[in-house]
Write a protein that binds this DNA or RNA. Structure first.
Length: 248
RNA sequence: UAACACCAGUUAUGA
């Protein structure tokens, strides 16, 4: 039955929702993971109705199944339904809190996001990153920086959030400083600083970063292209298109 | 402090 769940997981990861559903329907031995895997698949594709039906039909739910349905409303987005689920849950762990904080942040309700954060018994690094990002994306980079300074520990996500947060506020220098001070960088950090340059009008910097970065993904290419386009560098954009990687 | 092949939930980058 673990093997069924592995199959289900593989199918949903490849977007084969229908196949996943039919496998689910044909299996007799379902456990909470079987159910939750399918619920997550529906929820991640915006099919909250189906997800909710399964959620209500499942014989027993645990905190992961609750958080899965919660997350479905977070990404929809439907902050009120998300809050509904969140406050109905039999128990809340940091993962559930973090998801709900994101929902408040995405709808501009920073104070409520902060209130939840303060109310948490245990905060993990994701919690801190989430509240830092909540401030940054709502135009309070100063608060984001203040909170960042008080975090017990940082990871690559924390640093990258500050790089992009400052860039969005137009603080090119601070953005760059955070990038330089980072101990570990991944492709997201590199994409972030490249976009930071473009955002603050330094498209030449974007190009240089693109050339220097150790690895690229689709977002790296799209970012540079967008940077050119938004700064009126149409010739450069066309040149870049020639070298664009294709996905087959 | 990580590796030894992934059964489900939360945070950072572009369009």
């Amino acid at each position: 039955e673990a093997s069924t769940n592995i199959l289900l997981s593989a199918l949903t990861q490849n977007g084969r929702l229908n196949d996943a559903k039919s496998v689910f329907d044909r299996t007799r031995q379902r456990n909470v993971v079987t159910w939750t895997t399918l619920i997550a698949a529906f929820a991640q594709n915006g099919h909250l109705g189906e997800a909710r039906q399964l959620f209500e039909a499942m014989p027993q739910r645990n905190i992961v199944s609750w958080t899965t349905i919660l997350q479905g409303f977070v990404v929809l987005p439907d902050v009120d339904e998300a809050a509904n689920v969140f406050f109905s849950m039999p128990g809340r762990d940091p993962v559930a809190y973090n998801a709900m904080i994101v929902s408040y942040a995405d709808s501009g309700r920073v104070l409520e996001a902060r209130a939840l954060f303060d109310e948490m018994k245990q905060r993990d690094t994701v919690s801190w990153n989430t509240i830092v990002q909540a401030y940054a994306q709502n135009g309070h980079v100063d608060q984001a920086a203040f909170t960042f300074d008080r975090m017990p520990q940082w990871d690559v996500v924390s640093w990258t959030a500050m790089v992009t947060g400052h860039a969005q506020a137009g603080h090119a220098l601070q953005s760059w400083e955070f990038f330089v001070f980072m101990k570990q960088r991944n492709v997201v950090s590199w994409n972030g600083i490249m976009n930071a340059c473009a955002l603050t009008g330094n498209i030449l910097g974007s190009k240089q970063i693109f050339q220097k970065m150790p690895q690229w993904d689709e977002i790296s290419w799209t970012s540079l292209l967008a940077g050119y386009a938004q700064n009126g560098k149409l010739l450069e954009a066309e040149e870049l298109l020639v070298d664009f990687p294709s996905d087959d």
